[in-house]
């Protein structure tokens, strides 16, 4: 029929037309020629920003301009938008972090898993600050946000606990050590204990944030002349913002959330702008609750956890928080 012969030339011819000016008449000329259509950079970027990391890195070999993709602010913006739009395909990039800290042997390894086979894993070097001392490392909130992990590390020197966090992008090897906060060490009559740390993203301000719960215990031998009533051992909820590169104390009434110590590991989870962790609502650490912190609005929510069996001795219950 006439129709089918009209439809015959199809895409082979169409490709060469795309390169010409949008004039229909001279398009017919190129019907028999088959040539590659050049996809303009902006359009190519919108495709590339949806690729898994490994493919994206391989395609740096395509051309000089593609090899500089990670330095292109326009592209990085698209990549970030795609990551945050939550529309990523399921294949995503899967990372495996192995850590064994049984003294005296320590073992820490970080892998990118690909092609669904463990044999295809690719080992990554940890960021330099974590290489010096790789003990007691963990990934805050068990999450990777826009390519960034937040590596946390608790160390104890004598009576003093310290906490260190390093923001790290394994793809670009970029890293940044999060500064410590002024509330960690002063005043000297108390020593901090880092109950919980969480890492999340503030969609409203395009900001990366850390949240942590610090409780304090008294240090007697460094006692000063301060009267007892002036001393405070009240726990603190502190938040760090990458944009301001500083910590600040959150004025949130925490009478209800007493303690986190029994909930191991203390890293919690992050999902859709909210950090979640396990806590208790009473002094005796019996009533469990799920504490959720909205990273954008900076508000806390609490969800009571119902205990399955009242007869069970709560000391023997181990709770784990996971994202399914």
């Amino acid at each position: 029929s006439r129709l089918s012969s009209q439809l015959e030339p199809k895409h082979g011819s169409f490709e060469s037309k795309m390169e010409k000016s949008p004039a229909a008449s001279d398009a017919i000329e190129g019907i028999k020629v088959r040539s590659n259509v050049h996809i303009p950079d902006d359009l190519a970027f919108s495709i590339l920003s949806k690729l898994p990391l490994k493919s994206l890195k391989r395609f740096e070999c395509v051309s000089k301009s593609w090899s500089l993709l990670f330095e292109n602010p326009r592209f990085m913006n698209m990549l970030r938008n795609h990551f945050t739009s939550n529309k990523r395909s399921d294949y995503g990039d899967t990372f495996l972090f192995l850590s064994a800290a049984d003294s005296p042997l320590t073992y820490v390894a970080f892998y990118l898993l690909s092609n669904e086979k463990f044999e295809n894993r690719i080992k990554f070097d940890l960021p330099p600050p974590c290489q010096e001392d790789d003990t007691f490392l963990y990934i805050l909130s068990s999450v990777c946000i826009n390519g960034f992990f937040c590596m946390g590390q608790d160390t104890r020197r004598g009576l003093v606990n310290t906490f260190r966090a390093v923001l790290w992008n394994p793809a670009t090897s970029d890293f940044m050590v999060i500064p410590s906060s002024p509330d960690e060490h002063v005043p000297p009559y108390r020593s901090p204990y880092f109950d919980f740390q969480g890492f999340g993203y503030d969609h409203m301000r395009d900001d990366y944030k850390l949240i942590r719960y610090i409780s304090f215990f008294p240090v007697t031998d460094e006692d000063e002349d301060m009267p007892l009533e002036d001393k405070s051992y009240e726990p603190l909820l502190e938040i760090y913002s990458l944009r301001s590169n500083s910590w600040r104390i959150l004025e949130i009434d925490m009478l209800d959330i007493r303690d986190f110590t029994y909930a191991q590991p203390r890293i919690g989870v992050y999902l859709d702008g909210v950090c979640h962790w396990l806590g208790t609502r009473d002094l005796y650490q019996i009533e469990g609750c799920l504490v959720s912190f909205d990273m954008s609005n900076e508000v806390l929510f609490m969800t009571p956890i119902l205990d399955i069996d009242e007869s069970c001795d709560l000391i023997f219950i181990k709770r784990h928080l996971v994202v399914l």
Partner: peptide, 21 residues
């Protein structure tokens, strides 16, 4: 993106019409 994820560099050059410079 899904279809080119496991493709070679050469394939992607052809597909996007990019010169190897």
């Amino acid at each position: 993106a899904d279809r080119i994820a496991n493709k070679s560099v050469e394939y992607v050059r052809r597909y996007f019409g990019i010169e190897n410079d």
